[in-house]
Amino acid sequence: MILSLSKDNIEVVREQDVVLLRNRVKEVAVKIKMGLLNQTKLITAASELVRNMLRYGNGGTCLIEVVSRGRDNGVRLTFSDQGPGIADIGQAMRDGFSTGKSLGLGLPGSKRLVNEFDIKSKVGEGTTVMILKWANG
């Protein structure tokens, strides 16, 4: 059972918001005493996902939560956009696949950097990606 202890919503519409989001995630991670390596992994994953949201989804929102499960604390980030959605999630999760001109590492790479990863998408409605990193995970 995962409990949500605090919630914070950030809107991301411009490139500059990416730095703001990274800083906010960092603050929360420091507050629950997450180690430097896990912080770096979490913020890098967030950076990849927020870029996807800006590039393909025309921006969106990121919900930052402090969560707990038993004695473990963690940070959960939920990125939601109302973009075109992803037709084939399996394909999008493969290394090196990109409909843009990028390296195609964003989704599969961020999945490797966190403890939990969930993606939901509907064509024409938008995409939601949830990632969770435990402080000691």
Binding site: L36, L37, T40, K41, L103, L105, P108, G109, S110, R112
Partner: peptide
Amino acid sequence: MQPAVAITLIELGL
């Protein structure tokens, strides 16, 4: 390069 950045880059696949 900071060590944490190096570790993260490799796991990311870069």
